[in-house]
């Protein structure tokens, strides 16, 4: 029983990070229909910026995350302006090639700046908390709480503010949004900023319990794609739900089924869910 609860909590932790990363991916896909493979590289850069700010800059962990959010958000906007915007009238395959190009570029850049070594991110929240007979680290609690707060804020922004509504409008009907006068460039830049910020938060939260290295985004982005396919491409609730489904499946699967093949679970899940519900759990575009 304790093991089960412990594993459920682990699932919640991993799922929170997956959801944050998948949300950015699904928002970008929703408005521009670009499967942004470079999103995983933003995640990786997010971890490095936080690490550098802490170790070299001497900033507090939380302040370092804020800096990372801004830096990665801006890199993400820059990517939209320099790479995707000029390609707006070209074919989907060109978007994919460009996205992979950005991914390779950012990884090479990370190699150049930070080297190929695995690095450990320190955290001021390493304390262990005991609740009944269960032990949690503060870091894991921080991950869950922060992720949920961020998701609630994002939901309120999309649902309750006019600016947020323009993102939803554009994801539901792109030309409809143009015809009411919504500035497509503004919405695209805003969405890329949010996506970058979410990737930075996800990476910065999870790095103290994982490791930081140039290709750390690979598996995460693959899984994020699985999540948004499961949840429905472009769907916000789909990304959140999909993230947690995957998080729980992985932690429970690793404990009770086969720990060596934990990373396979995402793809098995993908095959099963797509067989039953080929469009994903949610139709595209909802909040």
């Amino acid at each position: 029983m304790e093991l089960l609860i412990q594993q459920l909590f682990n699932g919640l932790t991993i799922g929170s990070v997956y959801s944050l990363v998948a949300l950015g991916l699904t928002l970008v896909y929703g408005i521009l229909h670009i499967p942004n493979f470079a999103h995983g590289a933003l995640y990786m850069v997010g971890a490095y910026v936080t690490l550098t700010m802490m170790v070299q800059g001497g900033f507090h962990y939380l302040l370092a995350i804020v800096i990372s959010i801004l830096v990665v958000g801006l890199i993400s906007v820059l990517m939209e302006r320099v790479v995707f915007h000029p390609l707006r009238d070209s074919t989907p395959i060109q978007h994919k090639v460009a996205a992979i190009g950005v991914l390779l570029f950012l990884e090479a850049l990370a190699h150049y700046i930070w080297g190929a070594d695995y690095q450990q991110m320190p955290t001021p929240y390493g304390q262990v908390v005991k609740v009944f007979d269960l032990t949690f680290t503060m870091q894991r609690i921080l991950i869950v709480v922060t992720a949920i707060v961020v998701m609630i804020l994002l939901y309120l922004f999309l649902k309750k503010t006019y600016t947020g509504a323009t993102i939803i409008a554009m994801s539901q009907n792109r030309e409809g949004a143009y015809l009411v006068g919504i500035n497509a460039n503004k919405v695209a830049m805003l969405t890329f900023f949010i996506a970058g910020a979410l990737a930075a938060i996800g990476a910065s939260l999870t790095s103290p319990i994982n490791l930081v290295f140039p290709s750390m985004g690979h598996l995460v982005i693959l899984k994020a794609f699985v999540i948004i396919i499961i949840g429905g491409m472009g769907s916000v609730p789909g990304a959140i739900l999909g993230g947690y489904i995957l998080g729980f499946s992985e932690s429970l699967g690793a404990t009770y089924l086969f720990s060596d093949y934990k990373d396979l679970i995402a793809f098995v899940l993908l095959v099963i869910i797509l067989t039953v519900k080929p469009q994903g759990i949610f139709a595209k575009g909802g909040v």
């Binding site: 509504a165 939803i168 409008a169 539901q172 009907n173 030309e175 409809g176 949004a177 143009y178 015809l179 009411v180 006068g181 919504i182 500035n183 497509a184 139709a283 575009g285 909802g286 909040v287």
Partner: peptide
């Protein structure tokens, strides 16, 4: 399109282009 809407031209497209889940 957004600049054109500002000048006072608005189009109701044939397929309506509504935000169906709003």
């Amino acid at each position: 399109p957004d600049q054109i809407v500002k000048t006072g031209i608005v189009q109701c497209a044939e397929d309506r282009k509504l935000f169906t889940q709003m």
